[in-house]
């Protein structure tokens, strides 16, 4: 479910990221609009995760700015985060809570949409596991639960760090369908992946960070 209304725009201007004295990238710029996907490529350690964390607003860029509809995301704060959902390297779910409890918390942290928690679980093939402790699920199931968080709040921009980790072929297919649906109904996507990301109906930009290394 995606909020309707004006077209949104995420822009990066001359981003630079330095880690341990190494310039991972500099002068990085792009513009992402609704219905578009940004796929980040590059070797391990080329700064994909760092870039995603900068786009989230968790990490500060060493130079340059990220703007949402023309305003710096650092200034927007929660007003930016209400439009975004992030699934990072770590799942961001509590193992000692059930999937339902996890999703309820995730929904309360953002702007809830109309999808019921059960429906979200069903979409990631976790129906029937809603009251099992998450600790007892397999790694792939835990990852799908993390991705189910995307479905319970009303967000435009999904920022995903290696969403397919631990997923089997069927799991990957399920998630790809969700991503496709999101972008084709006007959502935005910024994603890193070692797997090829197959999105049928989407304008895709690719940035290879290995090419930008200084």
């Amino acid at each position: 479910m995606i909020e309707t209304g004006n077209n949104n725009m995420l822009e990066a201007h001359a981003l630079e990221c330095i880690r341990d004295d190494r310039t991972l990238f500099s002068g990085l710029a792009f513009r992402l609009e609704r219905g578009q996907a940004l796929i980040l490529e590059g070797r391990n350690g080329s700064g994909k995760t760092s870039l995603l964390r900068i786009l989230c607003g968790i990490r500060l860029a060493d130079a340059g700015t990220v703007t949402w509809d023309g305003t710096d995301i650092g200034k927007l704060g929660p007003d930016y985060h209400v439009h975004t959902a992030y699934v990072g390297h770590r799942d961001g779910i509590k193992l000692d809570l059930t999937p339902l409890e996890n999703l309820a918390m995730a929904r309360a942290l953002g702007k809830p949409n109309d999808t019921t928690l059960e429906a979200a679980l069903e979409k990631v093939d976790l129906y029937g596991f809603e009251d099992v402790l998450t600790r007892n699920l397999s790694a792939g199931q835990q990852r799908r639960l993390a991705l189910a968080r995307l479905l319970v709040t009303d967000t435009v921009l999904w920022i995903l760090d290696e969403p397919f980790t631990s997923l089997d072929v069927h799991g990957i297919q399920v998630i790809e369908e969700l991503l496709d649906q999101h972008t084709s109904s006007g959502g935005m996507l910024a994603v890193t992946s070692h797997h090829a990301v197959n999105l049928a109906s989407t304008t895709i930009q690719r940035i290879n960070l290995s090419d930008l290394a200084a």
Binding site: C56, G57, I58, P78, D79, H81, V82, T84, Y86, G88, H89, R90, D91, G92, I93, K94, L95, A106, L109, G110, K111, R149
Partner: peptide, 14 residues
């Protein structure tokens, strides 16, 4: 450690 703290920082609440 499990990444939920990140989610709090990215929530739409103060």
């Amino acid at each position: 450690e499990d990444g939920t703290l990140e989610q709090f920082l990215l929530s739409s609440h103060p």
